[in-house]
Design a protein around this nucleic acid. Structure first.
Lengths: 142, 142
DNA sequence: CTCTTATATTAGAATTATTCTAATATAGGG
DNA sequence: CCCTATATTAGAATAATTCTAATATAAGAG
């Protein structure tokens, strides 16, 4: 936590108690929370926190490059404090998301006619699968 | 168009004029339209069509496996009538989406600890880049 | 060709995620 | 300890999608 504070002291972002709570919740979190998950958790300690604060903070962190927005669930944005390049596998049944730490950048090459139209700046692989819990659930349905 | 009709005759989906109009709009379309794009277009010929009809039809087609939902723009779902496995590159500036027809399945392997938790069923690569139009626009900003 | 009914369409309301607003509060440098 | 630029807040606004329940119709049966 001290590290969080020192990390942001200079970046021109004010460390309010609400922001510190959000940062603490996010730090090391691998659950890929949505804004509402963060709101629910932080509200336990700061009952008057508003969604605007949560969204503002998430946007600020994203702009500073300390948070990634994950667009893999069509119903809501998820956030990932791990900003090292990595990928995700989502359960097609329950939408659980797991990290995939493999660097595919060498093999994800683009054909020249695409490169003629786009200057690539990054990539992200969405894997789809069925998690163990849902495999069991489905097996039981037969 | 005859092909569309015969294609759906048996599938247990009724061919209403609205659905035919949606199918015709989608057939061969590579623009990755959102529901609203489809609604606007079809409304020109069927001014009373409702969003419910558009969404219902898109869902039906998706369930029949004849349409793909693309989750790459956090603000809305896009649809792709090309159901052969392929990928997309999105402009980070204007959100234009272009198809990428490359089969990466051989190289997109997953580590064993992921395979222990998930049974993979597919994958999709999101490439991010800047399209030519926006490159020019940005160049002009300096 | 007409009847029948299961299925589709419709207008509009409801829901849900996200953004906006404008009034109030406060972090943190001086 | 002040000052003020920035943050927080409640609540309204917006926008995509889903729901509802009344009405219409595709298409198979006769």
């Amino acid at each position: 936590m001290e590290n969080i504070i020192s990390k942001y002291k200079d970046k021109g972002i004010r460390l309010t108690p609400q922001r510190i709570a959000i940062l603490k919740f996010l730090e090391g979190n691998t659950d890929h929370p949505a804004a509402e998950d963060i709101y629910r958790k932080v509200r336990r300690r700061y009952p008057t926190i508003s969604f605007a604060t949560v969204y503002n903070t998430l946007q600020t962190l994203t702009e500073k490059g300390d948070l990634l927005e994950i667009t893999i669930d069509p119903t809501r944005r998820h956030y990932d404090p791990n900003t090292t390049p990595h990928h995700h596998i989502v359960c097609t049944d329950c939408n659980e998301i797991m990290d995939v730490f493999v660097d595919y950048s060498d093999v994800l090459t683009l054909p020249s006619h695409v490169l003629r139209e786009f200057k690539p700046v990054g990539n992200h692989v969405d894997f789809y699968g069925v998690c163990r819990k849902c495999q069991k659930k489905k097996g039981g349905e037969n």
